[in-house]
């Protein structure tokens, strides 16, 4: 992992509230606080994993960063430039630098276009002149993602799910992006094919010096692929740390519960009694619980958790947590937290 001090991407206090309207006149009756004030940096050459349960705002974050959605508040800074309110015209060259890979390899490819047309489109836009030149470029990139270059004239339906995901990745790479936001890139795929695509993403990163934000709900996949990991809960980042610290010494109770809930493929692990079991489901982002949003499910919750929102604070080097009573926290950090009220 090569990092310079200047982040490639910096997200500051980002918010997205979707209005909820009612009736004929679309009167606003509330808002879904899908993303509610998150900040993080991504450095060149690294992979940031974004995990959390369904509806916590992961995809919305991805769409905000790539400017597919307009934020309600906050800033997105790419290569030192504030792109939050940049106009479409100025944004166009940047769109190439920041690409998104989607979960569904079936719906994101036009079924009426051949692989050559789909993957070649970016080259046509970039002004690669001759069809011959485009064909060569496309075949090179197909080979790079592990597809047969002979498949140039085939249609998406002739490919398996894993192969279609590769086509999607090939198209993305053709634009020579600097940052790739991959939203659940492998969750629609079978385990064996998942592993092929995960390996491919890693190889491409090494070869092309790519930077990734990988959004996923699978904690094992995220651990495998990420250098740093951010955990989201109901529109907030509750913990962010390098991979090792996050998985070895998770501090936020929610992170602990998440890790503890992953079924371990080892029959001996069944007898483990130190598991944390949360009760209830994730509350609705329409009416998130006040203060610490996790307090309705947290076994450590105290009165202060219901009244004072815990800020995201650095409790160990590079390890930020938003909790009044963190687990595994270094001595000093726990003391300050416990005496804050």
């Amino acid at each position: 992992m090569t990092t310079t001090n200047e982040p490639l991407l910096s997200v500051q206090g980002l918010e997205k509230h979707f209005p909820v309207t009612k009736g004929l006149f679309k009167r606003q009756v509330g808002a879904v606080k899908a993303v509610d004030g998150i900040s993080f940096d991504v450095f060149k050459g690294e992979t940031l994993g974004l995990v959390g349960e369904s509806g916590c705002g992961k995809s919305t974050t991805g769409r905000l960063v790539t400017r597919l959605l307009e934020p309600t508040a906050g800033k997105v800074v790419f290569e030192g430039r504030d792109i939050t309110h940049m106009r479409q015209g100025k944004l166009r060259p940047l769109r190439r630098d920041m690409q998104m890979i989607f979960q569904d390899p079936f719906s994101s490819l036009n079924p009426r276009h051949t692989v050559g047309t789909i993957v070649g489109a970016p080259y046509r836009i970039q002004g690669v002149q001759t069809e011959n030149g485009i064909k060569r470029a496309v075949q090179d990139i197909l080979e790079l993602v592990g597809l047969n270059p002979e498949h140039y004239n085939r249609y998406p339906h002739e490919f398996s799910g894993g192969q279609r995901q590769r086509i999607g990745i090939a198209r993305t790479l053709a634009l020579k992006p600097k940052l790739i936001i991959a939203d659940e890139p492998v969750s629609a795929l079978d385990v064996s094919i998942q592993a092929q695509v995960v390996n491919l993403l890693e190889d491409l990163q090494n070869e092309l010096d790519l930077t990734y934000v990988v959004i996923a709900h699978d904690l094992s996949v995220v651990r495998h692929i990420s250098d740093r990991v951010a955990v989201m809960y109901l529109g907030k980042i509750v913990e962010i740390a390098d991979r090792k610290s996050l998985y070895r010494v998770p501090m936020h109770p929610y992170t602990n519960a998440l890790l503890s809930a992953v079924p371990i493929p080892d029959p001996k692990a069944r007898a483990k009694s130190d598991r944390i079991r949360l009760t209830g489901d994730v509350p609705s982002p329409l009416n998130p619980p006040p203060a610490c949003r996790f307090h309705t499910r947290c076994w450590k919750a105290q009165d202060i958790c219901k009244t004072v929102e815990p800020p995201l604070e650095e409790l160990a080097s590079g390890h930020q947590v938003a909790c009044h009573f963190p687990e595994n926290a270094p001595e000093a950090a726990t003391k300050t937290a416990a005496t804050t009220p």
């Binding site: 998942q194 592993a195 995960v198 390996n199 495998h224 371990i264």
Partner: peptide, 18 residues
């Protein structure tokens, strides 16, 4: 199947074995 699967109960390897 076993080699394809990243596992939380073990050290992450450099590569999965799909």
């Amino acid at each position: 199947l076993l080699g394809s699967m990243p596992r939380l109960d073990r050290e992450p390897t450099e590569r999965l074995l799909p």
